[in-house]
Design a protein around this nucleic acid. Sequence first.
DNA 1: AAATCGAACAAAATAACAAAATGGTCGAAT
DNA 2: ATTCGACCATTTTGTTATTTTGTTCGATTT
Lengths: 193, 193
Amino acid sequence: MKKHQLAEQRILETAQTLFSRFGFKKTTMDDIARAVFKAKSSLYHYFKNKEQIYQAVVEKESRAVKEEIRRALAAADSPVAKLEAYVKTRMRALHRLANFYQAFREEYLESYSFIQKLRQDYDRYEIETVKAILAEGVAAGVFSVRDLDLTAVAIITAMKGFEYPWAVASDIARVERDIDILLHVLFYGITKR
Amino acid sequence: MKKHQLAEQRILETAQTLFSRFGFKKTTMDDIARAVFKAKSSLYHYFKNKEQIYQAVVEKESRAVKEEIRRALAAADSPVAKLEAYVKTRMRALHRLANFYQAFREEYLESYSFIQKLRQDYDRYEIETVKAILAEGVAAGVFSVRDLDLTAVAIITAMKGFEYPWAVASDIARVERDIDILLHVLFYGITKR
DNA sequence: AAATCGAACAAAATAACAAAATGGTCGAAT
DNA sequence: ATTCGACCATTTTGTTATTTTGTTCGATTT
């Protein structure tokens, strides 16, 4: 690996831990610079500005989560298993990134346009992914869905309702059980068959 | 009706519109006083302090919503119809109180303990109500629920995910359709029968 | 008594302003 | 290609004076 990429990587890793601890605003360029034993101005050789460092960190983490989900989906053999894998992998990743996620949410209030865009992109990815799983299930004859788009959005939106309580939850086993219940309702509904 | 109660009522109604427009903090006691053509100090003849006015407003509105829900539930004859009526009535009320709800949420961030308590109380009411409907459905043999408590919490939490987008939505017809999809998934799940 | 008010006051918000911190640029050195 | 220190324009922060706001109280009116 090139020397340049190596330094870049170290900056991103360091920035990631600082951002997750203090959030975007409270992490200063000088903080990052000192943590990687460089001068503040040296950072600008690798990144255009502070926002781009943050963006790179988020995108790196986002790519990692997407890759994690991709592998989980590949390992699942049925649409049911896929949807289950999707929700569980997503929520586990969220829990793993709890600190970063919380910092991300706090800052989100202040409407930085680049953060809005990042979130929007990820939302689109989620909807497309769920829609694809639903479509596959319908094609295979195991799912019966009234409206593909609306149902996908509904599932994501409902999941978002659990996002925060689950991200900060301490009792992981409890969360896993909650997810199981939720998935059961999602798959079979509450009316008796 | 007594003169005292009449004045009290007028204060509450006025405060309600002011709070819903400007939120708790930005509405001053003088604003309220001037709007009811009284001196600021006169308000203290009716209410102990500003927080209690706000609390009274929220509780009044909360009682109204609960009563609305009670009537809707009484008119529904099956557990399925009840759950449907519950969700729809709740969401319509929320939409009607959109301004107040938004103001309530903004201020909620600043941890006033009395607001936390109000929210907690309403949460408890919601869970109990949904639990009762689920229990009735199970007893009647139309619902099949793994865990009553967890499922009730799951339904509420999922509903909360839709709260904000729905409260501020302009296209009401669209919201009603969203709710129908959601209820369909809730009742029947997405797997083919 | 019940209701209203103005005066008064402590606490909180705001304004004003100087000092420090921060993001970013640039040219020189290696 | 990297690193750095000096430097600059903006923000942020700390401080103090000033105003606003919530609340109390005694006097007056109804």
